[in-house]
Design a protein around this nucleic acid. Structure first.
Length: 803
RNA sequence: GCGGAUGUGGCGGAAUUGGCAGACGCGCUAGACUUAGGAUCUAGUGAUUUUAUCGUGGGGGUUCAAGUCCCUUCAUCCGCACCA
């Protein structure tokens, strides 16, 4: 009988659909498992072979959990707002809604063809008004609690298109579309105070099971540092505050540097003697993003501000103030005290502009001719008056104490994390549900008016002055103030794509609820997400944003858990066959449809899991796909030599138990490749014997079912086993039968293998030492040499050390 | 630049976390079957000067024992806040 994968797969996909096999149960007394994968952005390119890597992995876990008796929720949806759809709409004069609809239909068809056990009754779509009603509702709550505010922020501004650009649309400093020059322009933007949650976002990582590198990356991104704010008096009579983590080096501060955007320039413009030069420098700096400014840090630029000087509070010395773009307005206070002897960037700057370098920390390996001395752990203070002789750590504390007493400094915790720029001047996003009234300021629209839907516009391009295309819809924009009834205007900015994805896991729980995000009872049952898998590239933005929103929802009593995700894992990228990232321009893109069509979904799923270590990047290989297809053929071929015996055959009994154990453990540890290898190895044994008992086949099919669900269902049916395989319990193993009675032990001399012996399981250390020393081969080889010692490790080896 | 990772046969990768390096798969070689083979089956397959020696990006170290731990160095990949 041929393996007709196409027929088999269609048959079972229809069966699952018709029977709603994978619909989450309503029995809330059962133990639950909520598996989550990042929902895709339905792009026009269709599904990428990278998507199914994550989806198959948690599909396997979810299918196994169902077999283990859990009530499983494994949902899928669409993160459908976004720039590419909008750009496509602009170019082709179609409504983004229509583009989105088509793309979703295509994605859904593709996902179904791979046989994922998603509960499609829970499907969500971030662009559906019934969905974004609640995105807007959350925004209003944030606004109500003072966590949304407006601030002037730099945006990428194309001087020729006259519109704001996403970072991605800026290529080598010019506009991707028209090649025009891009500068940083200040624009008033809605911001969310994620920084208010910074400490909790760090602290609560301790209580959740995220892979370590995700925790580390999040912590570094939040970037907590303990330091001090110090006020430097200015010759204008007022003062300038800096942030530093090295208050101990204050005696070595020989100049100050402020960011080009620092407000004191505007404030003291009358006193600045070289204002033209400063203005010119500011303009240059506006052409660079923060990233470029810091990246190009090796070639420092800057201008001294003439006419104002600062006074070092610790020794009352007058020092110059410079302006330079290596100081960022977005971190600390936008101003620093420069200590060239002990900070690499300050050192480079001082060398370039011949500014004085005063050493205040002594230590070994300190060569100030070459580089700054930044070693904190070894340093001892010098040239620093009352701090001399102290260790850096103690000196910092003493200095802060001194400054506090003088009233010119205090301890300060700082975070690199910046508030979340939440507005976009775009069409294809959730409208921000606020109204601007001249009398009342920004007023939220009443909850009863949610969702605030997008009006139809004629074209989707931003206005000439960079406003959202919504600004042109005067009928929509002009409204009345919900508070005082006067004429008012709607906010025309929309939300970023991140908004809808910051809470989607809650909506899956109860997607049709029109009164709340989801019913309280269901939230209490299903949350938190038990296992969330996604890409490392989402670690610092999406993952942090959604944790922030969830904490906020916890604070206002909507959810019952502090954290949304109990466990987070991550998959590696699938690269093109040439080892490079898959992209249209490189011509190395693999279309999942072709693989499913030519080899079948089961082969595709198996290969995606067998391709390599789950968390590492791996190149695609068509040959590898063929290898997995051959495995499927061999699985199918087992039907040719089934022996009517419900037990395991005696020679394979131990291996069967070991394999159940290995596959079960490996799936939990996401070592899918070795789980499959174990099944391949087992099938080789069946083929060697040209025999498999019914009992062995049953277990084998169950172990393979989560990975290759269609073929295993079909074979299960052909064999006439009870129920469908998905409804059967996961195989059990007997620990005692996984242990071999006899074990092969390696015998070494000085760590080199000389012989192998077989001993009973658990042979003691003493016995092994004896056996090792008396081994014939060893005796012969150690003849005339002195045996220094014998090391024995039970069940592993004996090592004879000789001189 | 900062942060995170990776480096093992011709290729993708295993290695119970310090204890037999190369499981499993691809490719390759030989044989069987066949009118035929880019099908299937069986066997072999790290290198070499093959009783043995060498071998996990390079260099150094710790240890009875290192792919695994430490120091150092090189290369590659991911993220860097308006791509998703």
């Amino acid at each position: 009988m041929d393996y007709k994968f196409s027929e088999i797969e269609k048959k079972w996909q229809k069966y699952w659909d018709d029977n709603q096999t994978f619909k989450a149960g309503t029995d809330l007394s059962k133990p639950k498992f909520y598996g989550l994968v990042e929902f895709p952005y339905p792009s026009g390119h269709g599904l990428h072979v990278g998507h199914p890597r994550s989806y198959t992995a948690l599909d396997i876990v979810s299918r196994k959990k169902r077999m283990q008796g859990y009530n499983v929720l494994y949902p899928m949806g669409w993160d459908a707002f976004g720039l590419p759809t909008e750009n496509f709409a602009i170019k082709n004069k179609v409504h983004p809604k229509d583009v989105t609809e088509q793309n979703i239909a295509n994605f859904k068809r593709q996902l179904k063809s791979i046989g994922f056990s998603f509960d499609w009754s829970k499907e969500v779509n971030t662009t559906d008004p019934n969905y974004f009603k609640w995105t807007q509702w959350i925004f209003l709550k944030l606004f109500e609690k003072g966590l949304a505010y407006k601030q002037e922020m730099p945006v990428n501004w194309c001087t020729s298109c006259k519109c704001g650009l996403a970072n991605e649309e800026v290529v080598n400093g010019v506009c991707e579309r028209c090649g025009g020059e891009v500068v940083q322009k200040l624009k008033s933007q809605w911001m969310l105070k994620i920084t208010e949650y910074a400490q909790r976002l760090i602290d609560d990582l301790d209580d959740i099971d995220f892979i370590e590198k995700v925790k580390i990356q999040q912590k570094n991104w939040i970037g907590r540092s303990e330091g001090a704010e110090i006020d430097f008096a200015l010759t204008t009579g007022e003062s300038l505050t800096v942030y530093t983590t090295r208050a101990d080096t204050l005696f070595g501060a020989t100049y100050m540097v402020i960011s080009p955007e620092h407000p004191i320039i505007e404030k003291y413009k009358d006193k600045i003697e070289n204002l033209d030069e400063i203005k010119a420098y500011q303009l240059e700096a506006s052409k660079k993003s923060d990233f470029e400014r810091v990246e190009l840090a090796k070639d420092k630029t800057g201008v001294e501000i003439k006419g104002i000087r600062a006074i070092n509070p610790v020794n009352d010395k007058e020092i110059p103030i410079w302006i330079s773009d290596y100081v960022l307005m977005t971190y600390g206070t936008g101003a620093i005290m420069a200590v060239p002897a002990h900070d690499t960037r300050d050192f480079e700057f001082a060398k370039k502009f011949n500014l004085p370098i005063i050493q205040v920390v002594a230590g070994d390996n300190c060569d100030l001719e070459k580089e700054a001395f930044t070693n904190v752990s070894e340093g001892v203070l010098m040239n620093s008056g009352f701090l001399d002789g102290l260790q850096v750590k103690d000196a910092i504390a003493k200095m802060i104490e001194f400054l506090s007493e003088k009233g010119v400094g205090k301890k300060k915790v700082n975070y690199k994390l910046r508030d979340w720029v939440f507005s976009r001047q775009r069409y294809w996003g959730e409208p921000i549900p606020l109204v601007y009234c001249e009398h009342c300021g920004y007023v939220p629209i009443p909850e009863s008016e949610l969702p605030l839907t997008l009006p139809d516009v004629e074209n989707y391009e931003p206005t000439d002055d960079g406003q959202s295309p919504l600004a042109k819809m005067t009928d929509w924009v002009n409204t009345t103030c919900p508070k005082c009834g006067a004429k008012a205007k709607r906010e025309t900015d929309t939300m970023p794509q991140w908004a809808g994805s910051s809470w989607y896991f809650l909506r899956y729980i109860d997607p049709d609820n029109s009164d709340a995000i989801a019913s309280k009872e269901l939230i209490d049952y299903w949350m938190p997400v038990d296992w969330y898998n996604g890409g490392m590239e989402h670690t610092t933005l999406h993952l942090l944003y959604s944790r922030f929103w969830h904490k906020f929802l916890y604070d206002i009593g909507v959810v019952n858990t502090k954290e949304p995700y109990a466990k987070r894992t991550s998959h590696g990228m699938i690269l093109g066959a040439n080892g490079e990232k898959m992209s249209k321009s490189r011509g190395n893109v693999v279309n999942p449809d072709e693989i499913v069509e030519n080899y079948g979904a089961d082969t595709f799923r198996t290969y995606e899991m067998f391709i390599g270590a789950f968390d590492l990047a791996t190149p695609w290989s068509e040959q590898g796909v063929k290898g997995c297809h051959k495995f499927m053929e061999r699985v199918w071929g087992l039907l040719d030599f089934v022996k009517q015996d419900d037990n395991y055959s005696s020679d394979l009994e131990s291996l069967m138990h070991k394999t159940i154990k290995k596959v079960s453990d490996d799936i939990e540890k996401m070592k899918f490749n070795t789980a499959i290898a174990a099944l391949m190895s087992l099938i080789n044994d069946f083929y060697k014997k040209k025999e498999i008992t019914k009992g062995e086949l049953k277990t084998f099919l169950q172990l393979l079912n989560p990975t290759a669900p269609h073929i295993t269902e079909e074979m299960w049916e052909i064999m006439g086993f009870e129920k469908t395989i998905a409804e059967t319990p996961w195989p059990e193993f007997d620990e005692s039968k996984t242990v071999d009675a006899e074990i092969e032990i390696v015998v070494q001399i000085n760590g080199k293998i000389k012989d192998k012996i077989t001993v009973p399981q658990g042979t003691s250390k003493d016995e092994l030492e004896k056996i090792g020393a008396e081994n014939e081969k060893i005796k012969a080889l150690t003849e005339g040499k002195q045996i220094v010692k014998v090391i024995a490790v039970p069940n592993k080896l004996v090592n004879v050390v000789v001189k």
